[in-house]
Write a protein that binds this DNA or RNA. Structure first.
Length: 389
DNA sequence: TCTGGGGTCCTAGGACCC
DNA sequence: TCTGGGGTCCTAGGACCC
């Protein structure tokens, strides 16, 4: 059966949502990510009006303010974007049972075998674009191809409000006409390695054998490059994950030096992670701690214990222990992160001796707090220590 | 211009075992 | 005596994505 995939990408998603909800923002440069004065923020999304000033994602906010002083700057409301995203994903599901969401603003839709029901892929794409526009006010860009990888690349070629189709049989020509920077999955490091190896185009890579690419770039990257220029690459990102994790990290406006402030920060991050684990009904035995110093050097340490992490205090204590091991006292810390790895589904049974029953009471208290907060989201019950500035 | 936050996957080295 | 080869698991760091 002929395979057909759509890749759909919401245009300047966060900024577009802001413009929808604030008519006075429409037609103006909107920058989501922070407001002037946020020292260490970066741009999350810039509206197309803002992009004309040279503002783009991942740019330090300070720079964006400089380039576009009259811009409308907002920190953004991610819960809200999530809801909008869900509304769009629901529309996709009307056209195929097989929708793979790979981030908040994009998804693959497998249209294989749906032609009799819904018509030609191009017509389906147009219908989806219209329906999204009508129901949510947002525009999307769509790529259509026989592989997910090519669909993903071509959805990005005619933004915004684009529709790009690579007909069957044209896959190789399409890939060989593509500048190297458009290879999804090859970032700046790989590009410079390719450059150093004398490979400047997708055609250069296409001309090399698999063993040669593997010897140059290693098993995984070599194979990736070999497949990618043939349009054969599977899902580079967003596939079914083997090892789930939940983490929370914060970059502080000013460096942390003192242990008390650090501990307060670790506790806050721990509470965050625990509550999200509870919401997702998962458990873990592995804690990961991340420290980024003021010069941006980043270190991490993790440990797996025999017992499951039972509650926020437990997680906090483990974080403190890891932190003490790794900390270079006196250096300014710009970021701290706490995470739990190797998440397991909590509904699966667990061996008794991997449970610490002494810690269960605290877990119950947290459970109650969690329920209270769910009932009344305005109420933030939290550790007294976190209430002080 | 001085670099967010939330993820996933890969690699290399060490420990440990047979 | 001065040294194998393979497998697996764990950890730290890094690349990449949106």
């Amino acid at each position: 059966m002929k395979k057909v995939f759509l890749h759909v990408d919401l245009d300047a998603f966060f900024a577009s949502v802001e413009q929808l909800e604030h008519p006075e923002y429409r037609g103006k440069p909107v920058i989501v990510g922070g407001i002037p004065g946020d020292r260490r923020a970066v741009v999350s999304t810039a509206s197309y009006e803002a992009r004309k000033y040279g503002v783009h994602s991942a740019m330090p906010l300070v720079k964006a303010v400089e380039l576009c002083p009259e811009g409308i700057f907002v920190r953004g409301n991610y819960h809200h974007y999530q809801e909008k995203s869900q509304a769009v994903m629901d529309i996709f599901s009307e056209y195929s049972p097989d929708v793979t969401q790979i981030s908040v603003d994009e998804a693959f839709i497998d249209l294989t075998g749906t032609e009799r029901l819904f018509g030609k892929p191009e017509d389906v794409a147009k219908k989806i674009k219209n329906e999204v526009k009508e129901k949510t006010g947002l525009t999307v860009s769509v790529g259509i191809a026989s592989t997910m990888y090519i669909a993903k690349i071509c959805s990005g070629l005619n933004k915004p409000d684009g529709l790009t189709f690579v007909p069957e049989g044209n896959e190789i020509d399409f890939m060989l006409s593509l500048p190297l920077e458009k290879l999804w999955g090859a970032g700046s490091k790989t590009l410079s390695r390719l450059h150093n190896a004398g490979l400047r185009t997708t055609r250069d890579i296409y001309g090399k054998s698999l063993p040669l690419l593997v010897s140059l770039f290693g098993e995984s990257s070599g194979r990736f490059l070999y497949d990618a220029v043939r349009g054969n690459q599977g899902l580079v990102f967003g596939g079914e994950a083997k090892n789930h994790s939940i983490s929370s990290e914060t970059t502080y406006d000013f460096d942390l030096i003192e242990r008390y402030a650090i501990d307060t920060a670790l506790m806050e991050l721990s509470i965050n992670v625990i509550f999200r684990m509870r919401r997702e009904n998962v458990r873990s035995r592995t804690v990961a701690l991340k420290i980024r110093y003021d010069d941006f050097t980043t270190v991490s340490i993790q440990s797996t214990q025999e017992r499951y992490i039972m509650n926020a205090d437990d997680l906090f204590a483990r974080c403190q222990a890891l932190f003490t091991k790794k900390w270079e006292k006196g250096r300014g810390i710009r970021l701290l992160g706490v995470g739990c790895d190797k998440l397991e589904d909590k509904s699966n049974p667990v061996q008794k001796d991997l449970f610490d029953f002494g810690e269960e009471k605290k877990a119950k208290v947290e459970e109650a707090i969690y329920k209270m907060e769910n009932k009344n989201p305005g109420l933030a019950v939290t550790k007294a220590r976190l209430l002080k500035k």
